[in-house]
């Protein structure tokens, strides 16, 4: 072996392996998306005939207009735009509601000498074992008798009681130094002021993290919106897509292209939320020290 004068970065096996695994993972995630994109550019008939291919068609604009602005139902109100809107309201309401409720519950549990605080906490915690699907009938019954079917309240409120958020905020609040609480007490901050002036700003990284998780969770809700919304103008994207593909009218083909494109559009907001809040998340982590 002759020694080369130029120091060359040696390719190590582990680096190569890392890249192979990551590349495969990325392809595994991305290829279906690209397939959907391709399928939304070709006429619906071609999808039936040929299935996925490498042929890029000219139907993208058409499908986009149909997906966003054309109603698929009878009432003519469930356009892509209105469904996108409804999904946003559900996602944001869901996330914000869970965060507010979770923070306040955790605040009560951690900072107030409640009689059965620990018991209450574990009671909340065990509801993790009872997801919506288990209690869907009683929940529906209650929402129905409160007259909240086909309303945003009915869509959001039954979902926002969250053990997850309560648990994370509880852990976070317990790590806030006791001295800070005492300093605020001496500075004349009452319970409400302490919560708003000190705890909420301190929790902003936690809030960002929770928001990412909960928004995506709420955005992807399918079962509950299907139960609660029967009016077409209340449809959310996730259930609306299903409906577009389901409709067989006589000899008409389902509008695959339109459905596919709408599915792609439905992916974009959660991705944007994650990207946006991630930068914020990192900033918060590096700036504050406790």
């Amino acid at each position: 072996m002759t020694a080369t004068l130029k120091p060359r970065k040696r390719l190590r096996l582990s680096t190569v392996m890392d890249h192979i695994v990551l590349t495969l993972g990325a392809l595994f995630m991305l290829v279906p998306m690209l397939m959907v994109l391709q399928l939304s550019t070709v006429p619906d008939a071609e999808i039936i005939q040929r299935g996925p291919s490498l042929h890029i068609g000219d139907q993208l604009d058409d499908n986009f207009v149909k997906a966003m602005f054309e109603a698929s139902g009878f009432s003519g109100k469930n356009t892509g735009v209105s469904m996108l809107m409804n999904s946003f309201i559900l996602g944001i309401g869901f996330a914000v509601g869970k965060i507010i409720l979770g923070m306040m519950a955790a605040y009560a549990i951690v900072y107030f000498r409640l009689r059965f605080a620990t018991l209450a906490f574990w009671a909340i915690f065990t509801t993790l074992l009872l997801p919506l699907e288990v209690r869907i009938l009683p929940s529906y019954e209650i929402v129905q008798s409160l007259g909240m079917l086909n309303t945003y309240q009915g869509l959001i409120i039954p979902l926002i009681a969250s053990a997850t958020a309560t648990f994370f905020f509880r852990q976070f609040f317990m790590s806030v130094p006791e001295e800070l609480v005492e300093a605020a007490r001496i500075d004349g901050a009452g319970p409400v002021k302490f919560f708003i002036d000190i705890l909420v700003p301190l929790s902003r990284t936690m809030i960002a993290a929770m928001f990412i998780i909960m928004f995506v969770y709420g955005w992807n809700q399918y079962l509950w919106p299907t139960m609660i919304t029967t009016e077409e103008d209340m449809y959310t994207l996730v259930r609306g897509i299903k409906q577009i593909i389901q409709v067989f009218e006589g000899t008409n083909l389902p509008e695959y292209g339109r459905g596919n494109l709408l599915a792609l559009i439905a992916v974009i907001p959660p991705v944007l939320i994650v990207v946006f809040f991630q930068s914020w998340f990192v900033k918060g982590l590096t700036e504050s020290d406790k």
Partner: peptide
Amino acid sequence: QNYALYPH
């Protein structure tokens, strides 16, 4: 002892 300043 640990100053207890409001970090934000």
